[in-house]
């Protein structure tokens, strides 16, 4: 029985500035925001929707009749945030509210800057605090303040402004950019953790499935054909063959290696499944199916719990493996 160690985990951050094209209704709304004006749209039942909706909630018909509304309105309900999360409009304690602007029949969701729950109530009149430099984005409404608020509270801390997009020649805002940054904790299975810890010691550690007896590297929390964790540990050499490969010539966002380079399925001697890695140490067009390769390890001081400890695989110069010996791994 293998002793359990805590599985490995590490931060996973994903971030992208999403570009959202708007279509005619939202483009008009955003363009108006850039001019510090708020526009709604009339629904099939006569209600004025703010923010505007492209399609009527009841009839699903496309809506077209814009209606300008006030930047002053009434709080319909609210909730309190003691600890704002990243990206929220006010980066100190604040209230979310559904606010019906004068001239509108539906409520807009936004933030209200007040210093405590004592300072806000349903029915309260609030007005827009515009961003200093509106760009045509919902955050041009920086937040709301009580309608009778003076300057004594000062500006609330706000998150970074979204990047502005190029406008059409007539000034219309056709797209908005919304950065989305998320932080996760990424974990790997206990089985893969053992393999990664072995890599940190310069060892290739696979595991055998107790049912099909195939040797998996990396080992698996569940053998994909039997649905049970792999168990028996198998030390594997750092030599093997290229089963198949591709020469990457295309650059792309997020790429970590300069093209051209060869990504290949490497089948270690004694393993029953190949993994993807790089083949260097020869010209890309010299890489062959069946070519014998050996791991080129990074200097020991750079080792961590990752297959990246192997910088790449390189040819050993031995004769190629016959096709029949690996045909069933393609």
């Amino acid at each position: 029985m293998i002793t359990e160690e805590t599985p490995l985990h590490a931060p996973l951050e994903i971030g992208f500035d999403y570009t959202r094209s708007l279509g005619p209704v939202l483009a008009h709304f955003m363009t108006q925001l850039a001019n510090r004006r708020i526009t709604g749209i009339r629904g099939s039942d006569g209600r004025v929707h703010v923010p505007p909706v492209e399609y009527d909630p009841h009839t699903a018909e496309a809506l077209t009749e814009f209606v300008d509304v006030s930047d002053v309105g009434t709080v319909r309900t609210w909730s309190w945030v003691s600890h704002p999360v990243e990206g929220q409009p006010i980066q100190r304690p604040f209230a979310w509210a559904l606010i019906t602007l004068d001239g509108a029949d539906t409520a807009l969701l936004h933030a209200v800057d007040v210093d405590s729950t004592e300072q806000i109530h349903t029915g309260m009149r609030v007005r827009v605090r515009w961003a200093d430099e509106p760009v045509g984005h919902i955050t041009d409404i920086a937040y709301f303040v009580p309608a009778d608020a003076g300057e004594e509270r000062g500006d609330a801390p706000t998150p970074p402004r979204p990047p502005a997009t190029e406008r059409a020649e007539d000034g219309t805002v056709r797209t908005v950019i919304t950065p989305i940054q998320l932080d996760y904790t990424h974990s790997v299975s206990p089985e893969e953790s053992r393999y990664l810890r072995a890599l940190a010691e310069g060892r290739m550690l696979g595991q055998r499935c107790p049912e099909c007896e195939k040797v998996y590297i990396p080992p698996r929390g569940a053998c994909p054909t039997d649905g049970v964790p792999t168990t028996t540990e198998v030390e594997l050499p750092d030599t093997g063959i290229v089963t198949t490969f591709c020469i990457v010539n295309v650059p792309f966002l997020g790429q970590r290696i300069q093209p051209p380079y060869v990504t290949a399925y490497i089948l270690l001697d004694g393993a029953d499944i190949p993994f993807l890695h790089l083949v260097l140490g020869c010209e890309a067009d010299e890489v062959r199916m069946g070519m014998r390769v050996r791991a080129a390890w990074k200097p020991r001081e750079e080792w961590e719990t990752s297959l990246q400890n192997v910088s790449h695989f390189e040819p050993t110069g031995e004769p190629d493996a016959p096709y029949d010996s690996y045909a069933h791994h393609l």
Partner: peptide, 24 residues
């Protein structure tokens, strides 16, 4: 092509994924 922690960042989109199988 987002490479989670601990993984080998050799992914090259869908083309990079399928090209070796075309070769096969």
């Amino acid at each position: 092509s987002i490479a989670p922690p601990f993984s080998m960042p050799v992914g090259a989109g869908a083309g990079g994924y399928f090209a070796p199988h075309v070769r096969s």
